[in-house]
Design a protein around this nucleic acid. Sequence first.
DNA 1: GTGAAAGCGCTAACAC
DNA 2: GTGTTAGCGCTTTCAC
Lengths: 322, 322
Amino acid sequence: MAAGVSVATASKALNDTGRMAPETRERVKRAAIELGFRPNAMARGLLSKRSFTIGLLTNDTYGRFTLPLMAGISEALVDHGVSVFLCTIEDDPALAKIHVDAMLDKQVDGIIASGKRIDRRLPVDLGHLAVPVVYAFTDGPDDSVRFVSDDAQGSREAVQWMVGLGRQSIVHVTGPTTFASVKVRADAYSEIIGAGAEILHGKWSEAWGHEAVAQLWGGDRPRPDGIFCGNDQIARGVVDALRERGVGVPGDVSVVGFDNWEIVAAATRPPLTSVDMNLKTLGKEAGLTVLAMAEGKSVEPGIRKLPCQLVVRQTCGGVEAG
Amino acid sequence: MAAGVSVATASKALNDTGRMAPETRERVKRAAIELGFRPNAMARGLLSKRSFTIGLLTNDTYGRFTLPLMAGISEALVDHGVSVFLCTIEDDPALAKIHVDAMLDKQVDGIIASGKRIDRRLPVDLGHLAVPVVYAFTDGPDDSVRFVSDDAQGSREAVQWMVGLGRQSIVHVTGPTTFASVKVRADAYSEIIGAGAEILHGKWSEAWGHEAVAQLWGGDRPRPDGIFCGNDQIARGVVDALRERGVGVPGDVSVVGFDNWEIVAAATRPPLTSVDMNLKTLGKEAGLTVLAMAEGKSVEPGIRKLPCQLVVRQTCGGVEAG
DNA sequence: GTGAAAGCGCTAACAC
DNA sequence: GTGTTAGCGCTTTCAC
């Protein structure tokens, strides 16, 4: 080769393995840099059985949950030389199988399955693959490793924050009862509020936020002074509806959302205080975990709940109180 | 092997190459399926110099533009057995280089560079790589293949639609002058409107939409009956502001947005008519093009403009007129 | 028609 | 210390 050594020596030099004159090692390394030499990962992988590649499978088309997750995964794994295949399957089992097979053919070191809700599974069985699988923000088999956000804790933070601000009558406006996260969040809310708890279920939309306000302010009933919303879209609808009725936010009523979806939360007037699920961190954890499993480390199966975080903007007032 | 043939024969049988008894071929294929045999893509790639893998590089963190693009790319390439590495670089040259090197090591068949505006380049030089590169929704070298949406045509469709509905006085509320697409869209608007053209520049935000309406309705000036907005966020701000002033949309004023960002357009009251850039189609084209280049087909360099499409919802009225 | 042999780019074991 | 050899899983001549 260019440095006047054999391929084997070059390999050892560049990988810092084997014994050889430090001088030789240096010379080879310099030559490699000079030539812009980069080892062929396929050839290397053929031997090592490692591709330094993982697959991220998702059915979240809009990327609402997948993108932050992906950012975390990528950030955690790029240092390890691992690249990520992103595969979006639209709840289509056939498409899912094609993508999984393609990943497997390409010898991915592991797969992260993710979705848009934690109580549904992807339409494909990843139970008995030859590579490790981790579930992030989606359901998986009992003996699997699953990462989810701690919605109960996040809800408690939100409700307690309003209570701490002196709010006396807080209602919960949330999504359809069919979502597990709706129940978890609602239960956490009820636990804190106790007897006066009131939960309104509807769609995950701004329109439902408007309608809920119409219900709450429409009749001859006592008005709440705090509204904890099941997601940011509902919260935005609520805030808009309150403003249209001349109700002050945060003056008369505090509002908190859930998801901390920047595009919605920041555009709300005033900007929305919301619970962030820390999906990026969740992605990091999931990434490091598949990697560990791929390296043969054993990982305890079960559900890992990662804490949420209240992001305080202006719909609650009392920023100073924090 | 299991079917009682050599590896060589098996290879030929499964790839439909070489000559052999049809009966043998069948037998091998059946055995392969039975054993769940899947060829190792790394070994195969080592020989063929093809990895059936491409890289998608982007600096669009929120995925606003990248996700639809990605969907198109993936959809077009999955049939060809190609998987996609998604690499998000945050305008960070060092990170970009790491990702590009990782892709190259993994022998990607090609790279698609994408971004969030067509007049900026990614912070990395992809000019002289060993693999084909195409640019989608981002700028690239003169001798490169670049896919962009035809913003001028999209703008014309929008403005002509309002004109066709009988609107007499249409203004254009758009983003910062520093964006090339702002100029393109504005020029297309001016060309149609002629003498009465009026362009208001501001931020890409709902807040700017509000402020623009305040300017237009604030003074003692004649009111427009049509507003063509530079993006959907501005449009939403405009529609909200008009409603708050008691101006009817689409009764008194027609509004059209740009981007057709579902989450914004659909939540607007009433739902927003908007120009869709067909990013998914753009992704498909870009995907098929890198693939063709990877297969050695020569592709004419230059800019390919793909048509936009007006998505009619309810902020213009005249649905029947279409 | 089928199989044996060579080789893709690399690393690991073993000579020298 | 360094080079030679073998082999990862596959495809591709080329004998038979």
